[in-house]
Write a protein that binds this DNA or RNA. Structure first.
Lengths: 156, 156
DNA sequence: TATTGTTATACTCTATAACTATA
DNA sequence: TATAGTTATAGAGTATAACAATA
């Protein structure tokens, strides 16, 4: 029915290609961090988000909860984050960035921003903002839906 | 427009989240194909693109050339593609879809199209086309494709 | 009994190096 | 010597199952 939704390539290919491009461009600046861009995303989460425990953190990062301890271990070893007891539940732990973690992240944030502009280089600046906005909406929707347990997808 | 509950999240997280969402939504329909969406992308390439040999195919798919033989083997075993000698070079081989391969791909194409609409469900239809267009330009730039074709900076 | 965090194991995907047959 | 395809092996990333501590 759709006349021609795809100009030249399918969506899955495009997403994968952009992902690889992003990695190859950004990961070169991540050598200070364990786990590359995964470590960066974890730092971003613990600094900018309020995630009460590791389970929430693993769901935000989109990785299994059994993977997270290893990532955290590496960042703790580098003195970038630390485990603290969570409020009101002695089983849970809250991951927080150390002073050094915030400093390293702050430095990297600018470098990553520049690298991202390279990745988006095919678009004019106004188009970049538009793309970021559309992608952000898709990603936030994707975060809420992949687990079809509770069918609550009314808020956006 | 709408008050963002979260500022635009970081790009790497958004791309990864969209990628996972795409996989979880589309791969469920790929059980007929070996290698899931990778097999689908390969079928797409050999049907819609004119790639002279496996090296060009591996570059298009964004995988190392040493990975491709295994993928092809699985698809050949299912009777979806076949290896043919390439024109003018007895070292090279051209991968072409069989009749069955075209038939299976044709069936899947519609299913995948519907699944993609679900993935893009957070956007209104005109926004989906816009997102596809912007993403397509980014992906083709990432691939290194010559963008001198029709002035990609201005066709919005 | 259910949940949080952890560990051990296995599976998937990919990268590195070496081999063959052609060019 | 260089290139297209192949194979073997190892590494990174992730998922599955089981466990201890706590709810």
């Amino acid at each position: 029915m759709s006349s021609d939704p795809e100009p030249d390539c399918d969506l899955g290919w495009s997403i994968g290609m952009l992902q690889r491009r992003y990695r190859s461009e950004v990961d070169t600046h991540m050598e200070r961090l364990p786990r590359g861009s995964r470590g960066y995303q974890l730092l971003y989460a613990v600094i900018h988000k309020e995630l009460p425990n590791q389970l929430a953190l693993s769901e935000y990062l989109g990785i299994d909860r059994t993977v997270l301890p290893y990532v955290i271990d590496d960042l703790v070893e580098d003195g970038l984050v630390e485990r603290r007891p969570a409020d009101g539940d002695r089983r849970a732990r809250k991951i927080v960035a150390t002073e050094r973690g915030r400093s390293v992240f702050s430095d990297l944030e600018q470098v990553v921003g520049n690298a991202e502009d390279v990745v988006l280089g095919a678009l004019a600046p106004p188009e970049r903002d538009l793309f970021r906005h559309l992608l952000s909406r898709l990603a936030r929707q994707a975060r809420g839906e992949p687990r079809a347990h509770a069918g609550s997808e009314t808020d956006l």
